[in-house]
Design a protein around this nucleic acid. Structure first.
Lengths: 238, 238
DNA sequence: GCGACGCTTCGGACGCGGCCGAACCATCGC
DNA sequence: GCGATGGTTCGGCCGCGTCCGAAGCGTCGC
């Protein structure tokens, strides 16, 4: 045989649709009960239980017992990273599931992707941010512009704190439902936090779906409008 | 079902030992004939042929016909990245093959991992950089210290340019042969470029292996020694 | 040309692994 | 305590996918 890590064992672990569904559901970062995992994966409870046990044994997942519930979650960031890498690759080479229909309309509209926003609202926000010169997308990746930096500082974000962390401030993340990029990185996470704190939206309990408040969606999208332009637009609005 | 990329298809593609062996063999960057792939994978020619066809159809591999030979190679860098991510994860969670012997000594000593250095020399460099306070490793990740920043500027690296790019400057990347981290990120790439430009080492043609010049290895490792300490050490050397 | 070689396609056998129903165990509410 | 609920273990069924031998197709050497 060969030296090196047993990529095949890991691959076959991720290669089962039921397990992949479970992993994808847990990618949102929150813990799910065994029953919820079974529902996500579309298999019976016993089947899901077996899969979960294998994933835990492989140290990809962690269990936390709470009363008669068992909460499963991704064991470590590098697990999420590897799954994310595979998702990106799968999307690029065109390995997309056959029925990409809107299983859950709310999920397609807006959801959490790990710690930042995804879905239609998020891709629209990203496009508007690029359009308005707040972030610059290049072949290298995506970066905050000087204009964008000043804008988000004025919006109350501690951009300097974000820049001090090793995590990239801006990253584009391919949206699976939209097939267009949305904003990830620490800025993406900060925006998700900001919107939650200001009551624009909240996370649907035990799900990744995002529920907007009446004015929340507009408030979020307005984040992509620079102050000077907004001063002009505001009086124009009804 | 769900929306999103078909991570399960991709996973099951990588989840077969024969295919994983082929991928791992091709990770070295050079193209292999179908027969060589079969030998690497330890299966018969017909079996390997089937696997190769599936990998090509999934766009993970490319074929190049040359006379009566067929050369297969990794289709794109992101395929290698995903495989590398899986190798790192598999190594961390302890999924290692039974016989981890050094199949290719040169590859274990030093190689390119995407655009930065990996292998024994790279992990030693990383350890020394942490030891000497040039980079700081924390739970959050790894970051360049003020001291390290000044050091690399003095070494001739345009650190400000690296910081301006969206890509993280420092990232730790788990080395699959060493099981210890080495430096990735734009700084890791810049160091690899620097060493190549200064003739410390060069990339083995059509492979990921690194060939050091006579004094190259020492010169590379000296990069982790801060200037003030080096002034003391130099006269002490023979 | 003809054989040798490299590779692929075809057909059939085998085995691993996923799946569920039923039974079993643990915890919660009352 | 007692049912109800959530989760896991067991047993058996079934199907997909891997594997190889044999045969077919193309290319190279002489």
């Amino acid at each position: 045989m060969k030296d090196g890590p047993d990529i095949a064992r890991l691959g076959s672990l991720l290669g089962d649709p039921a397990r992949a569904n479970i992993l994808a559901a847990l990618m949102a970062g929150r813990a799910l009960t065994a029953g919820e995992c079974a529902a996500e994966a579309g298999v019976s409870a016993p089947t899901a239980s077996g899969h979960l046990a294998r994933l835990v044994e492989a140290r990809l997942l962690l269990v936390e017992v709470q009363g008669r519930h068992r909460y499963y979650r991704i064991a470590a960031p590098d697990v999420a990273e590897a799954v994310e890498a595979m998702m990106g690759l799968a999307a690029r080479v065109g390995l997309v599931r056959t029925r990409p229909g809107p299983r859950d309309a709310a999920m397609r509209a807006a959801r959490f992707c790990y710690d930042h926003l995804a879905g239609e609202a998020a891709t629209a926000l990203y496009a508007a941010m690029v359009e308005n010169g707040l972030v610059a997308a290049s072949a290298e990746g995506v970066a905050l512009t000087l204009r964008g930096r000043a804008h988000f500082v004025a919006e109350g974000l501690d951009v300097a704190a974000l820049e001090a962390r090793p995590r990239p401030v801006c990253r584009s993340c391919l949206d699976w439902s939209e097939r267009r990029p949305h904003l990830a990185g620490s800025l993406g996470a900060a925006i998700a936090q900001l919107g939650t704190a200001r009551g624009w939206f909240r996370r649907e309990s035990a799900s990744r779906a995002v529920v907007f408040s009446p004015a929340g969606r507009a408030a979020l999208l307005a984040l992509a409008i620079p102050q000077e332009a907004r001063a002009v637009q505001r009086p124009a609005a009804p």
